[in-house]
């Protein structure tokens, strides 16, 4: 079973529309689909802007993992396949098979552990050929365990088209670093330093302040080969202190991050951009413990415009948007309302 996540760069960038397009396409191709999400999606009115939203229509024989309260209000009929012990803010998550098509709100697991558990359930208890995982807002974190990711971006993130193209190009670059599996998998999130003399685990998960930095620098020397940084780090703090780290290593080495998603957990891409340029300049390569494939990008010219202290629907130029995105990126870009959008199925 393939696992595919749909991630938005912001709210209203077209996650639900992309997801609905994929579900419809796979249904017509007779591929049984599994569906879950890391947040809450499919409601008719946006929780924040109060604008109408596209809803999720589930065809017969679709498998879905969602929360208790969403099942109570479901317009689709279903049969229960399995209950999980996972709780969300809307109750316990259950796995169901749709027996009569209809609308359903999806609120699935909100952590990576929960998503992994639900994914296993789809694998073991259903005949789904692929699992679609709906993102939530701009959330990324649990999605790194999936095989393929589709990013949705649009005017809701930024109405400046060249800015959007530059941002996605940068995300594409972040996904471009190699996979490194020589550090054993496990729940341990400690920072580790590997040198020709052995491996040391630091007494910290994070790299956000002087204490953390002191612990790390203490372990670095010219024998350092790899630094495994699986947990939280502050892009700004690391950027400010990179030279102290490089001065200790003074030769080519490798920084292993957990996944591209971890690098993207910042609101200021300028900090990340600076960070990457400094790594390259000092011959420090970057790799990931987990690396989902960036399969496609979908774009949405819609944005909720703030007018008179409330939101109204507005649009940027869709043709110009698609053109600039296609020019800037190697990853295929689709406006799913435009001809040729079906080609996305060849990539998944």
């Amino acid at each position: 079973m393939k696992t595919i996540g749909v991630i938005g760069t912001a709210k209203n960038t077209g996650k639900t529309t992309t997801l609905s397009f994929l579900m419809k396409g796979f249904f017509s191709r007779e591929v049984p689909v599994g569906l879950t999400g890391i947040g809450y999606d499919g409601e008719d009115v946006d929780n924040i802007t109060n604008l109408p939203k596209p809803r999720l229509f589930l065809e017969e024989n679709t498998f879905a993992a969602t929360s208790e309260k969403c099942l109570i209000t479901s317009g689709a009929d279903y049969e229960l396949i399995a209950e999980t012990g996972l709780q969300t803010a809307l109750g316990k998550i259950s796995l169901v098979r749709i027996t009569k098509p209809g609308l359903m709100v999806i609120a699935g697991p909100n952590t990576k552990e929960g998503l992994a558990e639900v994914t296993d359930l789809f694998r073991n208890k259903t005949s789904a050929g692929l699992l679609l995982v709906d993102g939530s807002l701009n959330r990324l974190s649990p999605m790194y365990i999936l095989e393929k990711l589709i990013f949705t971006t649009g005017a809701s993130r930024d109405t400046n088209i060249s800015g959007l193209a530059a941002e996605m190009s940068f995300i594409e670059k972040v996904f471009g670093f190699k996979l490194n599996t020589d550090i054993p998998d496990g729940k341990e999130l400690s920072i580790k330093v590997k040198s020709s003399e052995g491996e040391t685990a630091l007494d910290t998960y994070s790299l956000v302040d002087e204490d953390d930095l002191a612990l790390l620098i203490n372990q670095l020397n010219d024998k350092t080969e790899k630094v495994y940084l699986p947990g939280l780090f502050s892009h700004r703090f690391l950027g400010k202190n990179l030279m102290k780290i490089f001065e200790r290593i003074r030769k080519p080495a490798e920084f292993v991050f957990n996944s591209p998603v971890q690098l993207l957990l910042t609101d200021e891409s300028a900090n990340l951009s600076f960070l990457l340029s400094q790594f390259a300049k000092n011959n420090i390569s970057i790799s990931y413990r987990y690396k989902p494939e960036l399969s496609a990008i979908t774009i949405n010219p819609f944005y909720p415009n703030i007018k008179n202290y409330s939101y109204e629907a507005a649009y940027i130029n869709k043709d110009e948007f698609l053109h600039q995105m296609t020019q800037a990126l190697h990853t295929p870009v689709f406006n799913i309302y435009e001809p040729g959008a079906d080609k996305i199925f060849n990539l998944l």
Partner: peptide
């Protein structure tokens, strides 16, 4: 307020990445 939802979602992601949710 404007943009706070995205900020909170990012914060949740950071807690997730730091292993706090476990």
């Amino acid at each position: 307020g404007y943009g706070v939802a995205e900020m909170l979602a990012r914060f949740v992601d950071m807690l997730d990445a730091a292993g706090v949710r476990e």
